[in-house]
Each structure stands twice: as C-alpha cells, then as structure tokens.
C-alpha cells in the first residue's frame, strides 16, 4: 500500500460565480495517510476539501476546471453518481451535527438510505462503527437514547462513527475539533491517528499544532493558491517558501 496515490488533483480551478476561489491546484495524496490543509480564513482550503466529495455542487454558480481523480476515477466526469462517490468519501463537519434521532439510528442512517435492511447486519455495523470511533464504551447502554443527550465531543465522535458506518475509503474532516474543548479535541486527534490505518484522512484545521500533531503531509493554501505541499515535518521545520514560514510562525493569518 506504500506510496499509492488515492486522491489526485490536476490543475484544479474553481469559481463561485465570478470569484476565482482556487487557482491551478495540483496535488496527490497517498492512501492511509493524514493530510492537513492549513491557511488563513478564505484561502480556499475548505472549498478544496468540499470538492473532493462534490459538496460544492450544492452551491449556485459553482464552476470547476481541471480534474480530480479518486482511486483513479475522475469524479467530475459525466455520469458519475454523486451519492456513490459520497459513500466512498465520507465527511465530518465543523459543528457536530447528529440527526435528531437515537444514537443507534444516527449510525444506521447511512446504511438504511443505501438500502440495507438486514437487522443483524445493521446492528453489527453500528457496534463496529462506534468502536471505530472510540465511542462504544460510553454509549453501548444507551443506544436508544437521543443523540442530543451526548456531550459535544461525544456528538462529534458519533458523527465520525456515522461516517465510518458506510465504509468510506477516504474521510474528509472540516475543522472537526474547532467547536470542542481541549480534552475532546485530543480524543479526536488520537482517533485520527488510529483511523489512518484503515482510512485516508484529509483534515482542514486552523490549529497549527493540531496539523503538526496529526498529519503526515501538510498543504498550505493562501489566496486560493497552493503555496507549499510537503511532509509535515518539512513544512513546520524547514519550509521552502517565506509565506509558509510567516504563516506557521504566526506573522500573518
């Protein structure tokens, strides 16, 4: 599995209406790695993340040039089934957003909308997913309770479990810990470290230390351009570009 490219962006330009949000982005990400996107607000890192599971399709006036390949397939090619793509590329959002359903039904949702009816299968997948998100021990006795009764950090891990249940190969995380307290944050970070054995993870974060702690490679975005993309160690210890250096040392941003 070493050095196997799973996500490949090739000359990606992206517009919201007239606004040129991403300029000529090309980068490859390898399977079973954690890639962090960093950069100041409005630099395009979240936009780029949302291109990877076509969530930007929902925005009026969005337009893309270039190609994005996931597992070798052009995801913007004609005839691509977006819901199938999203099963392969899961997403965890900034704010925990469990459905107003029970803990169990939250996890089962992704299976049910994909036509799974087998009760025993759903039950075992729910357990598996909750274990995968390091939440099983805390909720195994209250699966029938509303998800809203969980704490913020638990809700976010529930959202991760919910994404895992449909067995994606890639997990996109859009500032998954920015709404959480430090203890919940470190739990999420530990989780990311464990998850990368099975999933490829792309994480957008404003937290420089977090990027340094969890990621293998880091991409620095600025004003819609990919300034530098390299091993995280290199980016943080010995960046090539002055802009990168300035940003990670907090001189602007």
């Amino acid at each position: 599995m070493e050095n196997q490219t799973i996500i490949s962006a090739q000359g990606v330009n992206f517009w919201y209406g007239d606004y040129h949000a991403l300029r000529d982005i090309s980068l490859d990400m390898e399977a079973h790695t954690v890639t962090a996107f960093i950069g100041p607000s409005g630099c395009g890192k979240s936009t780029f993340l949302r291109l990877l599971n076509r969530m930007n399709d929902l925005v009026d006036g969005a337009r893309l040039e270039g190609r994005i390949l996931i597992e070798g397939e052009d995801i913007y090619a004609r005839g691509v089934m977006v819901d199938e793509l999203r099963k392969r590329v899961g997403m965890v959002f900034q704010k925990p957003n469990p459905f107003p359903k029970t803990i169990f039904e939250n996890i089962a949702y992704g299976l049910r909308v994909n036509g799974v009816r087998d009760k025993a299968f759903i039950e075992s997948r729910v357990e598996e997913s909750l274990k995968g998100a390091a939440l099983w021990g805390e909720v195994k006795d209250k699966l029938k309770k509303p998800a809203f009764e969980l704490s913020g950090g638990q809700q976010q891990r529930l959202c991760i479990a919910r994404a895992l249940a449909v067995q994606p190969s890639i997990l996109l995380m859009d500032e998954p810990a920015s709404a959480l307290d430090p203890i919940s944050t470190s739990k999420i970070e530990e989780l990311i470290y464990e998850l990368k054995t099975e999933y490829t993870i792309v994480i957008v974060t404003h937290n420089m230390q977090q990027a340094a702690r969890v990621s293998d490679r880091t991409a620095f975005f600025y004003l819609g351009e990919l300034i530098e993309y390299d091993e995280t160690k290199k980016i943080f210890l010995n960046p090539e570009k002055a802009q990168t250096q300035n940003y990670i040392t907090g001189r602007f941003g």
Binding site: E84, K87, G90, F99, Y109, G110, V113, R162, V166
Partner: peptide, 19 residues
C-alpha cells in the same frame, strides 16, 4: 448542516428531505 450530513452519507436529495 443536517441536509449536508445526510447528503455526505450518500443519501439522495429526496431521501434527505423525506428522512
């Protein structure tokens, strides 16, 4: 965010609205 969560799990728009 609820709509997005559902769509991101591979649900169709109609499923998202209905469920």
């Amino acid at each position: 965010s609820y709509r997005n969560a559902s769509l991101a799990l591979g649900a169709t728009k109609l499923q998202t609205i209905r469920k």
